[in-house]
């Protein structure tokens, strides 16, 4: 039963990783930017959600209504006023890395800003359901993880529909495929970039909100998650939506099951090693060659 429990909880946690990776893969797929600040945005949402709960007694899940629009705006403005000038300046550079360095710097800046304002404490919203679990004849399923997993599935499906069925989603995919021609077809590319970065950031925020009832937030909590998200995105195939979900589930599963047999340090080594071996055989990731924007 220990193993089954590990499998189930691994998959649930994997869903959360997948959700975070979804935001990252979206930003990469459309803008071809690797957003190093993605984890920092996750952390900001965790901290905000925590304090809204702590001060106003707002349930973390309800704080979605406030925090998600806020994260979207934060992402949009980040693209508009920080990333866009760098992209414009590097328009004719063959291999631009300015935006990548910028997001890495931004991540450090955000982390230290939060450290300064909120301190380095480990914070978790102890809600009524934080420690709750469902017992299915001995199999124990953590309730907040289950909620997070369900949210991931819903968001992934909605997002996939958005990309494939809506005018804006189609324009986003077109921009990801050929930015220059998207421009020629009358798509306002900078605006599409802003919206993509906004949605990506909002997804990072959503992940944070679903974590805060059972995971401790601190200024550098994003780093734990961003590393995994990078691995997931590459594993699933850069820019692939289903890849993000499947990659997330896989990493969550391996991590959780491996933890049954060895210490956490060894788990990490195993995960990274398996990932490297996988890349040797399939460098484009699981869905990389089949699914493109």
């Amino acid at each position: 039963m220990g193993l089954l429990s590990a499998v189930v909880n691994g998959i649930l946690m994997g869903g959360i990783y997948g959700l975070l990776a979804l935001g990252l893969t979206l930003i990469f797929g459309i803008m071809k930017i690797i957003n190093f600040a993605h984890g920092a945005f996750l952390m900001v949402a965790m901290i905000l959600s925590y304090w809204l709960w702590r001060i106003m007694g707002l349930d973390p899940y309800l704080s979605i209504v406030v925090i998600i629009p806020l994260m979207f705006v934060l992402g949009y403005l980040t693209q508009r006023y920080l990333i866009k000038p760098v992209l414009d300046a590097e328009k004719d550079v063959r291999e631009p890395i300015g935006a990548l360095l910028l997001t890495a710097g931004l991540s450090v800046a955000i982390e230290n800003f939060v450290l300064m304002v909120f301190g380095a404490d480990y914070l978790m919203a102890q809600t009524s359901y934080s420690g709750a679990s469902i017992n299915l004849s001995g199999l124990s399923i953590s309730v907040p993880r289950l909620y997070a997993f369900i949210a991931t599935l819903i968001v992934t499906v909605l997002f996939y529909q958005f990309l494939n069925k809506t005018e804006l989603g189609r324009a986003m995919r077109a921009t990801g495929q050929d930015r220059g021609v998207a421009l020629l077809m009358g798509i306002n590319v900078p605006k599409v970039y802003g919206i993509a970065f906004g949605i990506g950031t909002a997804i990072a925020g959503l992940t944070g909100i679903f974590l805060i009832p059972f995971y401790y937030a601190h200024p550098t909590v994003g780093e734990v998650f961003i590393t995994k998200a990078f691995i997931i995105v590459v594993l699933g195939g850069l820019g692939s939506v289903p890849g993000a979900l499947v990659g997330g589930l896989l990493i969550g599963l391996v991590e959780s099951v491996a933890a049954q047999y060895m210490t956490a340090t060894w788990t990490a080594i195993l995960v990274y090693f398996a990932f490297l071996v996988f890349l040797l055989f399939r460098p484009s990731g699981l869905f990389g060659s089949r699914y493109e924007w």
């Binding site: 005018e167 077109a174 220059g180 021609v181 077809m185 009358g186 798509i187 493109e292 924007w293």
Partner: peptide
């Protein structure tokens, strides 16, 4: 030509009328 190569004929045409 610079089509959106991974998209369908229809999607390409619809993208032509984005404005």
């Amino acid at each position: 030509r610079r089509l959106f190569l991974n998209m369908t004929v229809e999607e390409n045409l619809l993208l032509g009328s984005y404005t």
